[in-house]
Design a protein around this nucleic acid. Structure first.
Lengths: 146, 146
DNA sequence: AATGCAAATGCAAGTCATTTGCATTATATT
DNA sequence: AATATAATGCAAATGACTTGCATTTGCATT
């Protein structure tokens, strides 16, 4: 696992001041394998005994995103955005319709397709977003899959 | 093009009262080949000389969606949702990053992939959503593709 | 270690798309 | 036409997020 020293280093590389809030938030997201909401980040900070305002959480997440340290997911069926440490990998997500949890998938079945599509349309293609919906094992147990 | 009589019929099939607002909104969306925002629907009604409240537009769109007559798209990079007449076709979208316009694409490159994925994970897969981002011809002209 | 200044933070108030409570009106059935 | 039920308008509420501004903090410099 990345040491908090590395988190500090990444902040410095971006010309960002290395504050306890930023270090704690970036480190928390680094350690999570799934995307997290602003409120969950906020609650985690409180849990860790770090006093912080929710607006600071939002500002910090946005700053980190602007600097390419995080990916922001604007979700469907859920009005809240989720944030994830950017490991610089192209990936897609399995999204649970029961609890909105997102599970990254590394394989991308669309690389060729995208090129074909660009040839067939007048769009300049910049990228794509694929979410696959379903119900995770937990929500299946809870009977939420109707 | 579908006659307004058919729109009325579709409302009746759903057990919905066939009001002038619903007929006008459903008909407008039926005639559009691209998804439309609530506000655009509202403005169009005013344009047509139909007096309606914005909240009624939202309620109507939601009712029509609940009854399977419309598809709602919760967009990314834009906080507004877009609505589209549901022609019961599985499709994907080319989404313009300049003006947020959505262009439907009928071909789906993912049918096989989805089955494979279900075998490989503990998710029950219900469907997927693929958006392909880029810049439409118009926005390319405007130089918005940076 | 003390200083100074830009950047970061807390707090309260503001946005913006969308939703809701309730009184009124329209639709479809009797 | 009368009635029951659903739809609508209006105003206020919601919820996620953003912003203005006064205060505090990180950190380069003295």
């Amino acid at each position: 696992m990345e040491k908090s020293g590395d988190v500090k280093e990444r902040l410095k590389e971006c010309g960002l001041k290395s504050t306890k809030h930023r270090k704690a938030i970036l480190n928390f997201l680094f350690c999570s394998s799934v995307p997290i909401s602003a409120e969950q980040v906020y609650l985690q900070m409180i849990e860790q005994g770090i006093s912080i305002d929710l607006s600071t959480v939002y500002r910090t997440l946005e700053t980190l995103r602007e600097n390419g340290l995080l990916i922001k997911h604007d979700r469907l069926n859920d009005t809240r955005a989720l944030y994830e440490y950017d490991r610089r990998e192209h990936k897609h997500y399995l999204v649970c319709l029961g609890c909105n949890k997102m599970l990254p998938i590394k394989h991308c079945p669309l690389e060729e397709y995208e090129k074909d599509l660009e040839k067939a349309t007048d769009f300049v293609i910049a990228g794509h977003k694929l979410d696959i919906f379903g119900y995770c094992a937990e929500c299946q147990k809870k009977g939420l899959q109707e």
